[in-house]
């Protein structure tokens, strides 16, 4: 980390663990439940938020001294919405396939409370470079949890990872029958595909994290 001072590096590493936006600040739960039924979607959402949050943080930080405090929330909302729409249009024009994959996420980004939360809590009071790092850090912290949840939900719910079957074929050909672990009577847990299971997995992550670091437990 020769490039960054110790304080700056902390802006990136903190949200990855001890100040994670999902497990500690409990922000962005809505999208964590909705889109983590498969790993690919989780990853794509993580990247999309990474882009919007880091750029948005810089824009808000640059404007921090001229934003009227009475309407700052609306101003933040406009910045996110404008960024998201521009990204959406550019993708539709130049990367149509990708924009089809992203379709739902684009809309979901605007409603992501992490973005508004970081604008309000950090970018309004800090310089652009620090805000940029804070955006990267928080988006990565968000993406890590999404990928963990997506990994377990897709593996246990559909028996696939990134859409590729890893546990064998549950139906198989008529001659051989099911293959892989399905041959021993294993079945996919359809419940894992439902949003409540995402909440339970997030709960388990929070449990593991707090049992390893007692400082995180509030009285």
């Amino acid at each position: 980390m020769g490039l960054l001072s110790k304080k700056d590096a902390k802006l990136i590493t903190d949200p990855l663990a001890d100040n994670n936006p999902i497990t500690i600040q409990v922000l962005g739960i809505c999208s964590a439940l909705a889109i983590t039924a498969e790993l690919k979607a989780s990853l794509v959402m993580g990247i999309a938020v990474l882009f919007v949050l880091s750029v948005g943080n810089v824009v808000i930080s640059l404007m921090r001294n001229i934003i009227p405090s009475k309407i700052r929330i609306i101003v933040q909302l406009i910045v996110v919405a404008a960024l998201v729409i521009i990204v959406d249009q550019v993708l539709k024009a130049f990367a149509f396939e990708l924009s089809k994959t992203l379709s739902v996420f684009i809309g979901l980004i605007i409603t992501n409370c992490i973005i508004m939360g970081r604008f309000e809590a950090f970018a309004l009071a800090n310089k652009p470079w620090q805000s940029f790092l804070d955006g990267i850090g928080n988006a990565l912290g968000y993406a890590v949890i999404l990928v963990i949840v997506g990994f377990f939900r897709e593996l246990l719910g559909s028996g696939t990872l990134f859409g590729i079957p890893v546990l064998g074929d549950p139906i198989g050909s008529p001659e051989t029958g099911p293959t892989g672990v399905y041959a021993f009577g294993y079945e996919n847990n359809g419940f894992m595909l439902m949003p409540p299971m995402a909440l339970i997995i997030v709960g388990l992550i929070i449990w593991v994290q707090r049992s390893r670091n007692k400082n995180l437990i509030e009285d």
């Binding site: 889109i35 739902v104 719910g157």
Partner: peptide, 8 residues
């Protein structure tokens, strides 16, 4: 589809 739930 325009916006069905991914994975479902």
């Amino acid at each position: 589809h325009a916006g069905e739930t991914p994975g479902l």
